[in-house]
Design a binder for these strands. Sequence first.
DNA 1: TTGAAAGCGCTAACAT
DNA 2: ATGTTAGCGCTTTCAA
Lengths: 345, 345
Amino acid sequence: MAEKRTKVKKPTMVDVAAKAGVTIGTVSHVINKTAPISDETTERVLAAIKELGYKPNSIARALRTKKSYVIGFLLPDVTNDFYSPVLSSFIDSAYQDGYTVLVVSYQYSSKREEIEMERLADKNVDGILLFNGCDDLALLQRMRAEGMPIVIADRRVDELDLPTVEFDNVATVSKVIGMMCKKGYKRIGFLSESTRLRNLNDRYEGYKKGLMENGLSVNPELVYISEDMEMNNLEKGYSYIKRILENTDKENLPDSIFATTDLLAIGAVRAFKEAGFRIPEEIGVVGFDNISFTDFIEPKLTTVEQDKTLMGRIAWDIMKSTLAGENKKTQHVILPQKIIVRESC
Amino acid sequence: MAEKRTKVKKPTMVDVAAKAGVTIGTVSHVINKTAPISDETTERVLAAIKELGYKPNSIARALRTKKSYVIGFLLPDVTNDFYSPVLSSFIDSAYQDGYTVLVVSYQYSSKREEIEMERLADKNVDGILLFNGCDDLALLQRMRAEGMPIVIADRRVDELDLPTVEFDNVATVSKVIGMMCKKGYKRIGFLSESTRLRNLNDRYEGYKKGLMENGLSVNPELVYISEDMEMNNLEKGYSYIKRILENTDKENLPDSIFATTDLLAIGAVRAFKEAGFRIPEEIGVVGFDNISFTDFIEPKLTTVEQDKTLMGRIAWDIMKSTLAGENKKTQHVILPQKIIVRESC
DNA sequence: TTGAAAGCGCTAACAT
DNA sequence: ATGTTAGCGCTTTCAA
């Protein structure tokens, strides 16, 4: 009567054991099916559990077993259209297997990324999914040495032989360039933000490879890489192309553009249209990502689709097998991308 | 030499104590500054910690103290443009205070939401942030009774007096409608997906309120609410308006549209433009959310901005004070929104 | 200022 | 088939 607002304390195994007239060992065994218990007592224990509303304490269990069923997911930015679907699908997949995920974003700061890696390890997660990042090989190496399972998404780490999932950017982009060549474009431009990020750099490699394979050489005049990393590329693609249009003689202009993101491509399309160019007749444009707007602009954007849901699922699969210690060989999964041909090229 | 691939086991307090020549109690005290320890031993302990690379085991600590420094964040969808910035900012804020967040998405399924709530509780999180959901008042009530701190974002729960943060949708939308009236629009339409979600319904309330306050009445002919919840509203707004345009006599058409999302609004703009309407002269359009495309379409979209970062931060502040038990009164924070007037209305 | 020791809630090895 | 018991690594009284 007086204990109204005292924080209700939850029943423990001891309570269950008492109520069922057995010992906690037996209770544990019926819960975990870790020893043969007679139907009769099993039933009594189950009844007691139900009656008391008993739930095993996951912390105590984790302390004992050294497994928390929590995975850390470290990514540059939760808000990003590319990362968040992967995260979402990873969470869902992990959920199916009874795991839950601690999400941490490092806002593109390697400093912070490093700190967060440590924090995750200190939180005793069972494994860490590292999404596109970590220049700090030493840290990765140390964590691995300490036995922390790590899997990397959207980035190769050639130096360290960690399990990875990534898209096949080089191959896909070179295929895109091949397609553009087949359509008759000869002066294919490359529009991108800084290629410091591995996957963007891979797209650049694919661009060069594609040109080579089609007997074209890389013309530095046609490589438009802007070093600043800020987003809202929509505006940036627009103003960038506009500037080029103003400062370049007609004969030195590209006859087509491969942009590393749809936002950039959409901005470019607008700039070209404003300047009176007809797309795709006079200028071909290809984007990357297949965001919903690509199907909506005029002309509809030719682009590349990446199955982010698949990446999240595969990332989890790899994590799971890594946790299970089935490491015959380190897994490296390379996911294909899909070229979506619409109207702009 | 033979112990090469054995999982390295981490040093514990016992190791530190041994190395420093003290007992574990003392080690604990220097770590937590929970008793006055002489400078000399403090130093010895610190040295031992450093030398061994000792890190406190958070699980053991959590078991002892009943605090995990983990918060559960339950949201409908990680991928959503509205939710994810709030999540991101919440994670960041929590991070500042040494908390880390377990993210769980329930994919708009109340069934799954319920399951996930329980799972979070079973994971011994210190609190749960529930983002827009939970029709199951009984569950909320039970969790609260069990002492689990819960704060709700983007949704009122009038029935239960839980701490909440939400935007002031009713007030903002009625203000928008007022503005539209002032500009001379008389037949203002309301375009929305299902108003089953609380905040969309609030916008509908705001719409009605705004009309009333300006001497207009609600004309059901002008209320365009589509029950299906699927995304890619871009296409939906477009096709919806197109259909209306085809099936409605000129004199029964709206002279302006308030859309509950920018995607819807942008789709609508396109449909109107295609049909030869001039915006804003013949049709005014207002969106909601201020996504980056709004500044980029023709004409630039008038819309409403919501400070999602602020919402995330406030949500954390409320959570923090709830955890601290500073509950003089249950907090209800209502965040303002900002009307961004551009060209479309 | 420090040591000793109990115990958080559970699992698992060992006995019976 | 079930009971006993020793910890997992830590915090926190209580003594010294």
